[in-house]
Design a protein around this nucleic acid. Structure first.
Lengths: 175, 175
DNA sequence: GGGCGCGGAGAACGTTCGTTCTCCGGCTCC
DNA sequence: GGAGCCGGAGAACGAACGTTCTCCGCGCCC
């Protein structure tokens, strides 16, 4: 097992545990056990828990944004495609809301800056998707629909919140 | 200082600290210092931290739901009034998102059931507000708008998310 | 007024956390 | 083949947590 594989195993374990149980509720020893990476190597690759938390959020941000981008680029109707993608995400068995909103709610001002960056990226992506002549507030409204669907789905999982938000979004872009 | 005042002081301190810093980041000793209530009395009134957390969320739930109800009952247009009330809430200087969503994000399955109850109450209130002939999905969509505005405002405070959501809600109820 | 009991102040306890250290086996290099 | 070093396993450390205990001073009753 080289350092690269150890990093992957650590991030896999950290993502699963941090996302499911919250960040403060998961100790480094639990990540060590789940990943099989010795503590010494863990602290060589990530010198403190905070760096592991940041790396977990950054990798998840890359995967999430890339997945959404791939799902909507080339789609005939990109805005509804966003919510179809959300519906699939909300239906994953271990879905538990937006990891970045959860991290911000838990850590507050101490949350790493990738949390803000994630929301800025999402807003930028939505801005690209709205038609050229649309009012500038449309991207803000779509952002509210995306976040709202995720927040509602966090407490009652399933695709329904995404479908309800999709209906609203379709009505918005038609105008 | 009788027990009733001690309870108030404890809940005030707990609300301020839990809401600002998160639940796990605040120790009982910090609540003792902030409230001025001795540890012995604290544990007589709330035998464990979990009971204090639940009491904090239950009181906040009562205040929040009552405040929203009072703001919309009797309003000429109750649905937009919801978002005007949200705009004022988001503008409070220490606004940091929905305490119940934050608690759920932090505690996950270990969150007290008042978190779910809070969302159910909000959904019920929105159901009362929609016109009689409206499609049943409308309340779900309004819930998404409320939650989404709160989530967006958590990271970029100010009334704007509520105003954007209000515009969408007005378009929805007009149909 | 003297024993008594309640409540306040904070020390103390056991556990858990993040992080570091110790020990030891196995590989490398001459 | 032997010395030296790197990495693994897990004990150990200091701090912080939730919770309990000890001590002490003050008010009450006869």
């Amino acid at each position: 097992m080289d350092d690269e594989e150890a990093r992957t195993r650590l991030l896999d374990a950290a993502e699963e545990l941090f996302y499911r149980h919250g960040i403060q509720a998961v100790g480094m020893d639990r990540i060590r056990t789940a990943s099989g990476v010795p503590l010494k190597r863990l602290y060589r690759l990530y010198p403190a828990k905070e760096t592991l938390v940041t790396a977990y959020l950054e990798r998840r941000d890359r995967r999430w944004t890339t997945g959404l981008r791939e799902a909507v680029t080339g789609a005939a109707e990109p805005v509804p495609a966003v919510f179809d993608w959300l519906a699939r995400w909300f239906s994953e068995p271990d879905f538990r809301g937006c990891a970045f909103l959860n991290a911000y709610g838990e850590l507050g001002a101490a949350a790493p800056e990738v949390v803000r960056a994630h929301k800025a990226e999402l807003h930028a992506l939505l801005t690209e998707l709205v038609p050229a002549g649309a009012p500038p507030a449309l991207a803000d409204q779509l952002l509210i629909l995306v976040e709202g669907a995720a927040a509602v789905a966090a407490l009652s999982p399933g695709p329904e919140p995404a479908l309800r938000a999709r209906e609203v979004a379709e009505a918005l872009v038609r105008q």
